[in-house]
C-alpha cells in the first residue's frame, strides 16, 4: 500500500475565500494555455475546484447557492463510501462478502 499522492500545490494566493466553505487557503492548480484568460483554483479544506471564468454562482461566496455550501462539520461527518474493510492477515481464510 502506498500513500504517495503528490502534495497539492502549497502556494496560497490572495484570492477570495472558497465559494463553498469560506476557507481562506486557496491553491492554484493550473492556468489557461492562453495566458491570463482564467485560472483553476482549489480550496485546501473542502477540495472544491473551480475556474475563475465561471459564473458568479460558482465562484463567489456571496453568490454561491446555499444548498451546495459545506461546513467543516459536514466534512467531518461525511460517511465513508465504500467502507474500508478490516485488514485480513495471512491465513485468515476466505473473505465474506
Amino acid at each position: 500500500m502506498s500513500d504517495t499522492t503528490p502534495p497539492r500545490a502549497a502556494s496560497p494566493r490572495p484570492v477570495s475565500p472558497c465559494p463553498r466553505c469560506a476557507h481562506e487557503t486557496i491553491e492554484h492548480i493550473t492556468g489557461s494555455p492562453v495566458p491570463g484568460v482564467w485560472e483553476v483554483l482549489q480550496c485546501a479544506r473542502c477540495l472544491y475546484m473551480w475556474r475563475t471564468s465561471e459564473p458568479a454562482r460558482r465562484t463567489r461566496r456571496d453568490a454561491y447557492p446555499e444548498e451546495f455550501m459545506l461546513t467543516p462539520e459536514d466534512i467531518g461527518a461525511a460517511p465513508e463510501v465504500p467502507a474500508v474493510p478490516p485488514l485480513r492477515g495471512p491465513g485468515a481464510g476466505p473473505a465474506t462478502r
Binding site: 482549489q42 477540495l47 460558482r58
Partner: peptide
C-alpha cells in the same frame, strides 16, 4: 464542469 453544484 457539468452542473452548478458539482464539486469540481
Amino acid at each position: 464542469r457539468l452542473n452548478d453544484g458539482d464539486g469540481g
